[in-house]
Design a binder for these strands. Structure first.
Lengths: 339, 339
DNA sequence: CCCCCGTATGGGAACGTTAACAAGCCGCAA
DNA sequence: TTGCGGCTTGTTAACGTTCCCATACGGGGG
């Protein structure tokens, strides 16, 4: 049976080195005012005892209250899009000596609230947040207490903080215009839950494109609330069964694009452009044209904003919009152009 | 310009409610021995001040030293495999009221060491670790101090801790046997760095299969150290240029499989089985047969082991091996069988 | 001889919380 | 009346660290 040895403290190191705890503190933190041979004795005692400083106690006492920890709250960490973002945030944090706590919300306001409360109770210095559709009033107190907040991927309603998004609306507009430019007029919209901000934006872009060609929205061709591949596949089947079926499809995320692919022939006369690039999209038959966004840039931008806030930037909240890119691969393509 | 308000403490709440800090502590922690109307007054003061308990201070003082935080250290959080694992670990932690610190090692022992040191300095209760190939002696002291450790995906050399892996060797053996069963005898091996444990295991399984059919390893057909899609594509080109080119390929991870696909025709006489399933593998041409492992199960199993250790299980270290599944999709397939 | 200054070190208090114990109050039985 | 047990509440000290100030030493200038 394993025996638990009490972790050594500065007091133990001090005793072993024949100095005071204060001197150990100075030596460990690399502060000046410790003579070389004292430092060496302390160093020796530290190695002998296997001492490691307790950073929680340190953070508690320090004047300049910093835990060097940030929280990252995303919709779903298993989603490759957020995984890339998380990795990017982690790299920025690592560069600055910060740690990252992660939490997934599943897009449930209640879980978001729980996760954030647990983070602020640990005195995180900042939060990078993919907000749910719920209210965020509970952030007011922590923010007054000095916790910085940056939203990413979507804005939080009624929360005046730095926000990093992509030009969802313009990207969608470009995608649908591409289809219109190839002569399509009956273009179906297959989207996720309409209460998600990005989905509303993409739908607006879809309407923009139709309007600029003088086409009115046909409600029969618009499907919201598709949560899975099978939802998407079912929606496609319905659309194809219509008296006037669509000749082209606009899908608003990778999951829906993939679900729809399963209902298409190889090749298929129906054209398709989807939001979100993903690996192998260029190897599918037919190859998939996409509106591509860059999760790594999203994460890095959000992290940089957050750290400048943590470093004391008190200017007005900023809103950064990153650009999407239309990658044409399907029929009418000028060749696969991937980064 | 924003003004920072000092966070209220229990003392402030106590003053506002006209009680002692100890009573506030009891009320906040839901301990018994607080009369209902006192509790109500405290509750009222808490809401009025926007008070939130400082869990770091709490953890420092508490006898039963628990930070309710674990660390997850993976190779690369952006890799979908580890992202799924991370999400699974996070869910288990969330169920138990624990938080998760994450860190990526990039498979660099130095970064692994840094990340783990930062985690243990924050007094995490446990670590779930995808170990690099480096030594792990630095874990001895924290473990004696009570930090529990579980390895996942790979074992750590010389570290006696719970370990969760999959049957890499048997899975590889089955994959290569499948190719042998279809009459192939010149089967190439395309693998990642040989200093990664899983790669050595999969190579051993490759040899097992060959040996059971009385075939000797042909060094010309074996490529190690492929780190990217382009490495894999280049290796394939070389192999095809050989005087006696392979008629089948065994690729040891998803990246290599995808890289190799780019060098194959549609269809192609060369058969292919790869390790790791991934989305759309069934939509490729030719469809890809794979050895599939379950990252969600890996993460959940590791988390459950870790939490039982944290709860005081002192029995001998366990080694859990999860099973892989051969999913046949290519030529000779009996149909796409996906979960 | 004294004074002053710079460098190295230590002592006491404090960060925000809780463990351990003590004290006050009530009612009830002896 | 006393004594006792249960309930609520408060007091003191401590967790491991660092801030603030005090002290000791040594040397140079008067």
């Amino acid at each position: 049976m394993r025996r638990l040895v009490k972790r050594p403290t500065m007091k133990d190191v001090a005793r072993a080195a024949g100095v005071s705890p204060m001197t150990v503190s100075r030596a460990v933190s690399g502060e000046p005012g410790v003579s070389p041979d004292t430092a060496a004795r302390v160093e020796q005692a530290i190695r002998q005892l296997g001492y490691q400083r307790n950073d929680n106690a340190r953070n508690l006492r320090q004047k300049n209250l910093r835990t060097s920890t940030i929280g990252l709250v995303v919709d779903d960490l298993a989603n490759p899009f957020y995984a890339l973002m998380a990795r990017s945030v982690e790299d920025e944090a690592h560069r600055r000596g910060f740690l990252v706590l992660v939490g997934s919300t599943n897009d449930e306001p209640r879980r978001e609230r729980e996760v954030i409360a647990a983070f602020t109770a640990r005195q995180v210095d900042g939060l990078i947040l993919v907000p749910t559709n719920g209210g965020h009033g509970f952030l007011k107190q922590p923010m007054e207490g000095g916790t910085c907040v940056v939203c990413v991927d979507r804005p939080a309603k009624g929360l005046a903080v730095d926000t990093v998004t992509v030009d969802n609306r313009a990207g969608a507009e470009r995608a649908v215009s591409h289809l219109l430019g190839h002569g399509h007029t009956r273009i179906a919209y297959l989207g996720d839950r309409f209460d998600i901000w990005t989905q509303r934006e993409r739908h607006a872009g879809y309407l923009d494109a139709l309007a600029s060609h003088g086409i009115a929205e046909d409600p029969a061709l618009v499907r919201h609330g598709l949560r899975s591949q099978s939802d998407a596949a079912a929606a496609l089947a319905e659309l194809r069964a219509l008296p006037g079926p669509p000749t082209a499809l606009f899908t608003t995320n990778d999951l829906i694009s993939i679900g729809v692919m399963d209902g298409l022939g190889r090749p298929d006369p129906v054209a398709l452009v989807g939001f979100d690039d993903f690996p192998l999209a260029d190897r599918l038959s037919p190859p998939l044209s996409v509106v591509s966004q860059d999760p790594v840039a999203l994460g890095a931008t959000a992290a940089n904003l957050l750290f400048s806030r943590i470093d004391g930037d008190l200017s007005a909240p900023r809103s950064v919009v990153l650009l999407t890119r239309l990658i044409v691969r399907g029929s009418g393509s000028v060749g696969g152009v991937r980064g």
